[in-house]
């Protein structure tokens, strides 16, 4: 019998602490697979955020930093500028990247740091108990928007992919999702592409991944993926918004 699908060497054997159905796990796997398949694992340094993925340093099977809340792009800048041969990625939540770390991400992107940023958008602060995030959907109930996100009071959700896209420097920016197998397959291809650009020393690469937080959304894992599809995808359109100009290969629709 041939094993055609198994865990990747890019991840350690340690079971994750994520809640059932939390797609942090899927995103971890895609990143782990990408660095392993591209043969980059042994020169990769990952940066875990503050958020539910804080323990990512235990799960990725490569050298890992744990950064302070929101500062992963600055830590990555310091590391990459010091040892340009390393492959640097940050793995950040939406509170981490789009709220407290807004300054760091914008400037790392604008300097064109040759790193890969994996931005996990689950529309909520997971770790601290489901508070409102900059990405929380209009009307969405969270523990700090108990009457639903009131856009008159706190504005509309931040579309980070579009924000990064409008900067001149970054060359590879994309938004993908995890709510169906098909989207996971696309997401994987995009994440791998991002790492490939970094390995080629090309550009700053940013991949936003729509993710679920069944626990804090108060939904079952199955309902949660439906919610992503129904509520998030229309507001956060999927696709590659920017890619280095001289890249010719088309975004394969998952091999279709």
């Amino acid at each position: 019998m041939k094993k055609i699908f198994a865990s990747t060497k890019g991840l350690t054997d340690r079971p994750t602490h994520y809640c059932p159905g939390c797609t942090h796990g899927v995103i971890h796997r895609m990143v782990g697979e990408s660095i392993e398949e591209l043969g980059l694992r042994e020169r990769t340094v990952g940066i875990a955020p503050v958020g539910c993925a804080v323990l990512a340093y235990e799960y990725f099977n490569c050298d890992m930093f744990e950064a302070s809340h929101g500062r992963a792009p600055a830590v990555a800048t310091g590391a990459k500028r010091s040892r340009p041969d390393l492959i640097l990625f940050t793995y950040q939540g939406d509170g981490d990247l789009a709220s407290i770390g807004m300054g760091e991400i914008i400037h790392a992107a604008n300097r064109g740091e040759k790193i890969t940023v994996i931005f996990v958008n689950n529309a909520v602060y997971g770790m601290t108990g489901g508070q409102m995030a900059p990405t929380t959907m209009p009307g969405q109930y969270t523990t700090t928007s108990p009457f639903g996100r009131d856009t008159a009071e706190v504005g509309y959700p931040v579309r980070m992919t579009e924000v990064i896209t409008q900067l001149t420097t970054p060359a590879f920016v994309a938004r993908v999702s995890t709510h169906t197998t098909r989207e996971i397959v696309r997401a994987k291809a995009v994440i791998k592409e991002a790492f490939r650009y970094q390995a080629e020393g090309r550009c700053f690469t940013f991949v936003e991944v729509l993710s679920t937080c069944p626990t804090n959304w108060g939904l079952s894992p199955r309902e949660a993926v439906k919610w992503v599809e129904k509520e998030m995808v229309p507001y956060y359109p999927l696709g590659i918004t920017k890619r280095p100009e001289d890249f010719t290969e088309e975004w394969k629709d998952g091999g279709h």
Binding site: S68, R71, A74, G78, A79, S82, L86
Partner: peptide, 25 residues
């Protein structure tokens, strides 16, 4: 290497990254 950071918060985290990969900073 000289990098002008976007803030001192970022600078302090950049030196964290730099020292973490074993570089005098």
């Amino acid at each position: 290497t000289f990098v002008q950071a976007e803030s001192e918060v970022a600078a302090s985290n950049m030196i964290y990254g730099s020292a973490g990969v074993g570089i005098k900073v």
